[in-house]
Design a protein around this nucleic acid. Structure first.
Lengths: 218, 218
DNA sequence: GGATAGCGGACAGTGTCACTATCTACTATG
DNA sequence: CATAGTAGATAGTGACACTGTCCGCTATCC
């Protein structure tokens, strides 16, 4: 198949496909001449995947490249697919702002460690989610929301349930490639799915508790 | 207080503060002369909030403005704080790509409606989370992950638990202003907190189930 | 009272990011 | 052999979130 068909089948404009190739999200097609190449089903799949990560998952192109490289490489064992995917999928974050004499950050980091230990979780010290979580907690604390501890407990409990179901579902996959793919897809797309469901459930619960009606306020 | 102190106390550079004022995230200070103004505690609080929404919550500046306007206005009843906050906090999304003969979108939208109905949730038809969720599900379907139904059920269940705890916590706040603030903060910052916890729990669960160790793979 | 630092406001500039457009030389196909 | 399509290179675009600079004025310290 040539590039026009690749574009038609995926809905991605040709210039964008070329851009993705330049950026390493897609490999070159099989060359048949100085200005001709052929693309196969793997290109279709990989392009769809790239599009999903960038558009729905909101990943930066560089992170999508990492994630795709992970999926379509052969050097991963099932023991570190997940870790590597998490590294690839977490866009780099700069150190959060250090105001004057601000120790909220350190306290939050300690709190994260404590939470992980208390739950009996085995988490690598380099997992970027530690940092993200600590940053968010530090911010919460700076905003005076220091009564977040019970909410955090609920969140952690909930996250455990999610992770349990997810890891079980993933481990049912046959081959390693399919597992890696599922890990990336669900890590990246699970976030918006969960966020949406949370909002929907919030509105429903609020309507019930506060007696609001289902009228549109727009 | 003058702008230098405002900057010092919040860690936000002066040019950025000026920019936020231009963009309506912060109101003008109380003028004391043609080129002098005074800022109060409310400015500090509002600036910290703005910063948190943009930096940690990842909101576009325009959405942060909406959310702040909601908090610091008086015309909201407790019945629609949540709905309005959700509208304000959901960055506008364009219609997802329509490839050739693609009905995954419609099917996904129907699936969302069905899920909401089955759960007995009362959700306004205009809630933007419907669209986000439908888009994500459609993408999943296009990627061939059509076995997501049981996972979705777990997610929905989980979201309900979260929402229950959250709405209860919010409704314990005294005044409406504090409620509005909490809704915005927790809606925006809850997402990264939950996402991080999910990743941490995933790694822990995976280590347990697949027998991975806690070595660093970096 | 004069030097210095800081201020508010306007406006232009910067860096990043994800594309998008154009051009050239070449190829496939009716 | 005319037309449409192609690969690859390079430059341009538009959105976004700042950031820098300048002006005329003010506050404050010696």
């Amino acid at each position: 198949m040539r590039i026009a068909e690749l574009s038609r089948r995926t809905g991605v404009p040709i210039p964008t496909i070329k851009y993705y190739m330049r950026e390493g999200l897609l490999p070159q097609g099989e060359r048949t001449g100085p200005n001709q190449a052929r693309y196969g089903e793997e290109h279709v799949r990989r392009l769809r995947l790239a599009r999903a990560l960038v558009e729905v998952g909101g990943l930066p192109v560089a992170s999508a490249r990492e994630a795709l490289a992970l999926i379509f490489s052969s050097g991963v064992s099932e023991f570190d697919v997940l870790g590597k995917a998490q590294y690839a999928l977490t866009p780099p974050r700069e150190r959060a702002g250090d105001g004057a004499g601000d120790d909220a950050g350190d306290e939050a980091a300690a709190q994260v460690d404590e939470l992980i230990a208390r739950r009996g979780w085995q988490v690598k010290p380099g997992n970027p989610a530690r940092r993200t979580l600590a940053d968010a907690l530090a911010t919460l604390r700076r905003l005076g929301e220091d009564d977040y501890l019970d909410l955090l407990e609920t969140y952690a409990e909930t996250a455990e349930q999610l992770a349990d179901t997810e890891v079980r579902a993933i481990s049912r996959r046959g081959d390693l490639h399919s597992m890696a793919e599922a890990v990336v897809i669900w890590t990246a797309l699970g976030d918006p799915v969960i966020a949406s469901l949370r909002r929907l459930a919030q509105e429903a619960r609020a309507a019930r508790l506060l007696g609001g009606t289902a009228e549109d306020t727009s």
